[in-house]
Design a protein around this nucleic acid. Structure first.
Length: 619
DNA sequence: AAAAAAC
């Protein structure tokens, strides 16, 4: 079972953990609301969301009111009960107590809120993953993380969750998530967001970014009366929009957000492509406060007028630098600037990523109003629970070399189970053929890439997480944000062309304070990456092979997009600060793999990225 | 040049 952060401190056990996220449970809300024992009678869809016209409006009894006020003292929700009788369902509040009594038993029983803390997917044999080296988590290192903050009137950071009191319901969810102490990015970002300031935040992979923007959004929505829903309108008016670059990441964010908002009455819905739209439409019709979406499906919903953005008060872009890169920018701009979303300044905008190139910062500033820049850097200066290795491997030798690595991995697997190995390749075809080759050579592998069906993608992720196929061949679809516990080894079979992608990829391992290994196959084709890679590894106190250093000097073009500035400093930099200086040098932010999350520096210096059971909230 | 993201 999971252990809490506190447990992991006490036990110095940073290996046993489980994520709460599971593709199947998230994407399958219908299943979650399936009939269960003791549940009131089924209400057909056409009768849902209608106040029973022949009956008086649902007015909570005084007992129920006090329950509501217990849920969110001082947040104004307690007095809002009667507002919710008018067609806007607040299933959490109405069904908070076991589903009987209260308003839920009358008109909302059909949408009893499934408990997001029960993970049907958690069939993984956790014990099989135990027993890795435990170095303990040193919370003192926590205080040493370099932080750069710029902007006007920056709110004070907090150091405990008690200081971020968002009401008893949310506090209870914090406890259920086993969060003991906010992570550095949470300590700074949450007060900034609660002060209603726009934010651009850079923090390592696995550093708790999702929670950092979810908690303030949920708290803000709970404070306001729920927006009235037009009767008869099939348009949904979410108050918060969270965009992410891949479907699986949206699924994961949704899963997390559901935990944070459980029994708060705040409804979270996810919408993404590749899955039947009808179920998503039904979820939207039931009411949505927070919409988590990928851009394409959202545009579809906007064009169908099934979603309007006119009530958006919170906009969050996860993996914001990816969302604003060449492939995504027009679509994002369209959603943010050319639909009916309130302008910047009229909404609160929050951008999060582990990497933030300065030119992307410049683009992003279009969306922001008087924002605060926050960079949470690495812990301490050194060592390596994640070992980064680079090996010179010709394309023709890659497969046999991979086989050697996996063999070694198998030997090292705990309890006879093979440790999870995530293999990144450059192309979808390459992923297919490598998966096939691995399989016919007796290695249980699966793959995830954009040409597979959504079902196949989610199945692959499940099968990998469960250990059924401990090798996952992936394109960059899996490079960002995904919280896959127990990944012991990330292999860059093909290196990416962009160092930021490398940073995100290797951030899939070394999570939650576990040790991790990242191996890259480098050859002539990757010469443009030599210099940034060598610099990155040096910053991470990794051993840089002599030949790579040579390569960096002699074979890579000077400067260029991949060039990082700032040398050994931890790198976080607000582009506004050096916009007066010349253009090229100053500013990419690299917050990436350096810190606690990936473990490269952090884990050994203690902070370790967290703990078992916390992990899934950590990106 | 590739990947991702709607039907």
């Amino acid at each position: 079972m999971r252990s809490s952060w506190a447990d992991s401190v006490a036990n110095a056990d940073n290996s046993a953990f489980a994520t709460g996220a599971s593709a199947s449970t998230i994407s399958n809300n219908a299943a979650n609301t399936a009939p269960r024992p003791g549940r009131p009678a089924y209400v057909p869809p056409h009768l849902r969301n209608r106040p029973a016209s022949s009956e008086p409006l649902a007015v909570p009894s005084s007992a129920d009111r006090s329950f509501a006020s217990k849920l969110s003292p001082g947040l104004g929700v307690s007095s809002g009960g009667s507002q919710w009788g008018s067609g806007l369902s607040r299933p959490g509040l109405s069904n908070g107590r076991g589903g009987s009594g209260g308003w839920g038993s009358r008109n909302s029983s059909w949408d009893r809120e499934a408990n997001p803390f029960t993970n049907e997917d958690e069939t993984v044999d956790e014990a099989a993953f135990d027993g890795q080296d435990n170095t303990g988590i040193n919370f003192d290192a926590y205080e040493d993380i370099p932080v750069e903050i710029s902007g006007e009137n920056v709110p004070q950071a907090v150091s405990t969750f008690a200081e971020i009191d968002l009401g008893e319901a949310v506090n209870e969810n914090v406890r259920r998530c086993k969060y003991v102490k906010p992570t550095p990015v949470q300590r700074h970002a949450i007060p900034i967001l609660l002060a209603r300031r726009d934010l651009m935040a850079c923090a390592q992979t696995g550093s708790g970014k999702t929670a950092a923007f979810c908690f303030p959004i949920i708290g803000g929505i709970m404070k306001e009366p729920p927006s009235q829903r037009q009767r008869g309108s099939r348009t949904a008016y979410p108050q918060a929009l969270i965009l992410s670059p891949t479907r699986e990441l949206s699924i994961q964010i949704h899963e997390e957000a559901r935990k944070f908002s459980y029994q708060t009455g705040v409804r979270v819905v996810v919408a993404y492509g590749g899955a039947p739209i009808n179920q998503q439409l039904r979820e939207l019709e039931r009411g949505v406060d927070i919409l988590v979406a990928t851009p394409g499906r959202l545009v579809d919903l906007l064009e169908r007028a099934r979603v309007s953005l006119q009530n958006i008060r919170y906009l969050a872009l996860d993996e914001a630098d990816r969302m604003l890169d060449m492939g995504f920018e027009p679509q994002i701009r369209r959603i943010v600037e050319q639909m009916d979303m309130p302008e910047r300044g009229q909404r609160q905008t929050m951008l999060f990523s582990a990497t933030f190139p300065r030119e992307i910062q410049r683009l992003a500033s279009d969306f922001l109003y008087n924002y605060i820049f926050l960079a949470v850097g690495r812990v301490g200066s050194s060592t390596d629970l994640i070992l980064q290795r680079v090996e010179f491997v010709l394309d023709s030798d890659k497969r046999s070399h991979l086989m050697d690595l996996i063999h070694a991995q198998r030997v090292n697997g705990a309890h006879g189970k093979q440790a999870l190995t995530l293999v990144f390749v450059e192309t979808k075809k390459g992923a297919d053929s490598l998966e096939h080759w691995l399989c016919i050579n007796g290695f249980p592998a699966t793959s995830i890439h954009g040409d597979r069906t959504q079902q196949e993608r989610e199945q692959a992720l499940r099968s990998f997480k469960s250990g059924a196929t401990p090798i996952l061949v992936a394109t960059d679809v899996a490079a960002r944000g995904l919280d896959i516990p127990h990944v012991a080894h990330v292999i860059n079979f093909d290196l990416p062309n962009d160092i930021d992608d490398y940073v995100h990829r290797i951030g899939r391992t070394g999570r939650a304070g576990k040790s991790g290994l990242a191996t890259a196959f480098f050859n002539e084709n990757n010469s443009s990456l030599a210099r940034p890679l060598a610099e990155l590894m040096q910053e991470a106190n990794q051993e840089v092979p002599q030949w790579l250093s040579q390569y960096a000097v002699t074979r890579s073009s000077y400067g260029g997009r991949n060039r990082r500035s700032g040398g050994a400093r931890f790198g976080g930099r607000d582009f506004r600060r050096d916009s007066s200086t010349r253009g090229g040098g100053g500013g990419d932010y690299y917050g990436g793999v350096g810190g606690y999350g990936s473990g490269a520096y952090g884990a050994s210096s203690g902070y370790g990225g967290g703990n078992p059971g916390l992990t899934s909230a950590w990106d």
